[in-house]
Nucleic acid binder design. Structure first.
Lengths: 133, 133
DNA sequence: CAAACATATGAACATTTATTCATATGTTTG
DNA sequence: CAAACATATGAATAAATGTTCATATGTTTG
């Protein structure tokens, strides 16, 4: 239960004064601030996480993902389904691929896209649950 | 098992020719295209979903959410924790509040923010799982 | 191998977005 | 109630993003 890591002295010296004032001083609710930075994941993980959610954060890409819930589909069918340019779809597929949400396999002239793994479904399902609550 | 909704005639008339060509014609892999549009959620739901994920799609907001995993925190403590301007944090909190990911309650002079519900944790956890796979 | 086809990609443009600065709103305290 | 404080917000700016157009890459077919 006891994790003392050489911080007792500072803690001692500011005790009882840490939640009296706020934004005007450097040290605030020091305990919380410290706990937060201790638990915060490393920068690059936060970046990757934000990038991942960015991939879900666009109507066109969401629609592509919903389309791929139904079947593996080639680019031009996606374009036809969503009523959009082949180029637009292709650009968005590149982003989805980068986020490893979809992959493509070649079948003859065409490249057929499919969901890369099951997290896609889970995450979108959770999102649905949230907006429906 | 039989769901015939008055579409048998068209289906008959184009049978066997629907996966011969692709992008140059209007009708493509018509069966897939049709299934996709049947299963596609309504426009406003897709929009809401994309907006929700946009809220997760920024490092600053992700960091705010991680901070709030640890404790309910006021704006200035968040600013101190993340080493950012009070104004920047406040603007981002507004977006998180709009997406109903966080709420705030007033406590004296301060406004203490907290996670609005448990989907936040679940969604971020799934995101973590994905980027770690 | 040449022509047709399916997809990918670079550049340009319009839109959206995140942060900063200045200031407004609303609360507490002497 | 006036001064101090905590938060919110509008305007401005720089950066990121989505779509289009033109074209490149790579595959198939006659």
């Amino acid at each position: 239960m006891e994790l003392k890591s050489g911080k007792e002295m500072e803690k001692e010296s500011r005790k009882m004064m840490h939640d009296i004032e706020c934004c005007e001083v450097e040290e605030v609710h020091a305990d919380k601030v410290q706990m937060v930075s201790e638990q915060m994941p490393p920068e690059d993980r936060l970046y990757d996480l934000a990038e991942l959610f960015k991939a879900f954060g666009d109507t066109t890409r969401i629609r592509i993902l919903f389309a791929l819930f139904e079947a593996d589909i080639c680019v031009c069918d996606l374009a036809a389904s969503l009523g959009m340019t082949q180029s637009a779809i292709s650009h968005q597929l590149r982003l989805l691929k980068q986020a490893r949400l979809v992959s493509g396999r070649r079948e003859g002239k065409q490249i057929v896209y499919f969901l890369a793994d099951d997290h896609v479904r889970t995450i979108i399902q959770q999102g649905m649950d949230h907006i429906m609550e």
